[in-house]
């Protein structure tokens, strides 16, 4: 189950993409590749001709057609921080994720885009096992953090979540003071023994989140008394206070105004120097602005992973093109 045969068949491994400067190197390599990533290209072309939702001709549902598409682009990296190999996710009977194979490189920002219900949040929540809280959710396939199997029964989720932090769609500060919000993680993990060290971590985290100057005089004030954008940055500070290796962001700006969004985006750019970031977003502009690579999901299937610039200028797959040009979604 470690590797999807589709991906191997397409020979994507041959593209050597390096984490930090993924953008430049993959641009070069992809130019020579052309788009030969579609095994079922004829099926899809038919589909696209008759309007993307009209699959009546071959008596199959859109889902079934999509599921046979192979991932195109550069899903695998040499410098993978996290890897997914043939991941399937089921909610009860319903399959939400179909055979996703992809890597998240070290210190890269990867954006996950796609229409609503395409499973991008689901796959994100698999990466730190937040899906465990959903009763009938079942995950199959391999997910690895630096080669360690995340879904190994022996894997402890507590340290995993300390290593893979998460920022949620709606800002969700605890109903406690700003200080306690940031200090909560270090406290429960026992990262510090003295108050002064904790103070340092809180200040450093708030500085990294670009919130220190705004809140330094009211650290004892309520975290929920901040504005929406400040609350979200507080949540980011809370996440980075435990020094995770990976930060997962699930539409972190969807509840924010444009100015707050711009601040968060700046922050993501700064954080990417030290952290690996996976961000799910509905805004293609945002994906284009903040990410190094972009993954496009459609109906639970990973359609394309490529350098962001390539995805938004010359995508390999028609579905990706249809989405970014606004024909679907």
């Amino acid at each position: 189950m470690a590797f999807s045969s589709n991906v191997r068949g397409n020979n994507v491994r041959g593209n050597n993409v390096r984490g930090n400067n993924a953008r430049d190197s993959s641009l070069r390599s992809n130019n020579t590749r052309g788009n030969n990533g579609l095994r079922n290209k004829n099926v899809l072309s038919q589909a696209l001709q008759g309007g993307i939702n009209d699959y009546g001709r071959d008596q199959r549902s859109e889902t079934e057609v999509i599921r046979e598409i192979d991932t195109v682009g550069v899903p695998l990296l040499d410098t993978a921080k996290m890897s997914m190999r043939g991941v399937d996710v089921f909610y009860g009977e319903k399959q939400a994720i179909v055979d996703v194979t992809m890597d998240i490189g070290k210190n890269e920002v990867i954006a996950m885009i796609g229409p609503s219900g395409c499973g991008k949040s689901t796959i994100l929540r698999c990466l730190n096992r937040m899906n465990d809280t959903i009763d009938h959710c079942r995950v199959e396939g391999g997910l690895f953090l630096e080669g360690q199997d995340i879904y190994d029964p022996k894997m402890d989720v507590v340290p995993l979540r300390a290593r893979v932090g998460m920022v949620f769609q709606k800002p969700n500060p605890f109903p406690k003071s700003i200080y306690d919000n940031v200090a909560y993680g270090p406290r429960i993990h026992g990262l510090v023994s003295r108050r002064i060290e904790l103070d340092e971590i809180v200040e450093l985290s708030l500085r990294k989140a670009g919130l220190w100057d705004e809140v330094k005089d009211r650290l004892d004030g309520p975290g929920t008394g901040l504005s929406g954008g400040q609350q979200q940055r507080l949540c980011i500070a809370r996440t980075i206070a435990v020094s995770p290796e990976v930060i997962l962001m699930d539409e972190p700006c969807s509840a924010l105004d444009p100015i707050a969004t711009a601040r968060i985006e700046e922050l993501i750019a700064e954080l990417s120097q030290n952290f690996t970031i996976a961000i799910v977003t509905h805004s293609m502009q945002q994906a284009a602005r903040v990410s190094h690579r972009t993954a496009y999901f459609h109906l639970g299937k990973l359609i394309e992973v490529n350098d962001t610039e390539k995805v938004f200028t010359n995508p390999d797959h028609q579905l990706t093109e249809a989405y970014i040009t606004g024909r679907i979604g």
């Binding site: 949620f168 500060p173 993680g185 996440t239 435990v242």
Partner: peptide, 22 residues
């Protein structure tokens, strides 16, 4: 609210810590 539970779990709180603290 489930968002508070998620926030606690997302930081790496154990289930008991989530219940007792939040």
């Amino acid at each position: 609210p489930p968002s508070i539970r998620e926030a606690a779990l997302g930081i790496g709180a154990s289930k008991m810590q989530m219940i007792l603290h939040h």
